[in-house]
Design a binder for these strands. Structure first.
Lengths: 189, 189
DNA sequence: CCGGTCATGTAATCGGTTACATGATTCG
DNA sequence: CGAATCATGTAACCGATTACATGACCGG
């Protein structure tokens, strides 16, 4: 199983939209894919070098000294499609909020409510940023072919955020009825 | 920033419910926390050893040769509470389905629909397993104090699954209207 | 000129998985 | 007895983050 790194997919994908520098790739991932993906510089630059080695990208200088622009080759586009076609291997879930809530008895309902409130507010903020991104991709020209797909991922984020908010509200109401036996104390098995 | 591994939290939490062997911890995490958490043996055993070193657990032999039972100490319980009280550092999102969908133009609407269908079916399966877990924790005795918190995490899973299903249905309908220009071909910028 | 942004890259480290090795116990 | 399950642990590896080092360019 040659399990390719997903960073490669993200980088190839980003460059399928338009040629960019490594720095710009990271910016694009943070600003546009931010709600479902992330990459760090420490991962992007080695990946770019490796993709150039494989012939999937070409590196060319820009006007600006020290900056290089990377462009997808035909081989790179083929690699992207091949990657996209691979079966999705199931991700191992790791939701730290739920992990804490699961053991919430040791924290008490009050502190748990604070965690849930935080999560709810974060979901609201995400919702706001989705609206901004939606407006942005709607108005910018040049990405017509991709735009419809991009909106699907936005919609996924919106559904998830709405669900998170609804759950948080329910949970906050429910937590009010919880007994406060162990709150702020380290005793009681 | 002393960023403690979350495996420690999961192990301490698991042992806060009842003493167990390392093997049983992994089973419990897989079966009960499976929809929002995962751990591998390779992480659990070293963590157990380290927690014993720190005085957070005691290791005692069982009737069965070669098997050890781990029990939370007072120090361990305090460490659990301390851990639970730490601020939640934001998780970097990595949703491979959405990453693929974002670059879905290169795959075509048909293949994208297959991915989304897969995700929808997986959400349905999760919903089924939630019902089973709910029935299980409802009937088993001895966990009355934790049960209410456990249900909160189940509810979160159910909300998320319902949202995923609703989004998938909408997306599948939407994908039917997408042009199939690049489907199964490697050409066309 | 100085601070902020654009830009590249590497080294140390980490958290985690996989694969492997080993062996006891239980059940058919 | 043999297979499945229970049980422990380690070594190799990997993907990724963090911190650090460096420097060009631009605007005030």
């Amino acid at each position: 199983m040659l399990r390719r790194s997903r960073t490669r997919l993200a980088v190839l994908g980003a460059l399928s939209v338009e040629p960019m520098t490594g720095y710009a790739i990271r910016e694009a991932i943070r600003d546009v894919l931010g709600h479902f993906w992330s990459e760090s510089f420490g991962q992007i630059y080695p990946t770019l070098a490796s993709l150039v080695d494989d012939g999937h990208l070409t590196k060319s200088p820009t006007e600006r000294a020290g900056a290089s622009q990377y462009t997808l080759t035909d081989s790179g586009r083929a690699a992207l499609v091949a990657f996209l076609s691979e079966p999705l291997e199931p991700t191992r879930p790791r939701d730290e909020l739920l992990l804490r809530l699961f053991f919430g008895r040791h924290l008490g309902p009050h502190a748990c409510a604070a965690l849930v409130t935080e999560a709810r507010d974060a979901a609201h903020q995400r919702l706001n940023s989705f609206a901004a991104i939606r407006a942005e991709i709607e108005t910018e020209t040049g990405y017509e072919a991709d735009r419809d797909y991009w909106k699907l991922t936005l919609s996924a984020g919106e559904h998830a955020a709405h669900a998170a908010i609804a759950w948080a509200e329910e949970t906050l109401a429910s937590l009010e009825g919880f007994p406060t036996e162990g709150e702020n104390r380290l005793s009681s098995s």
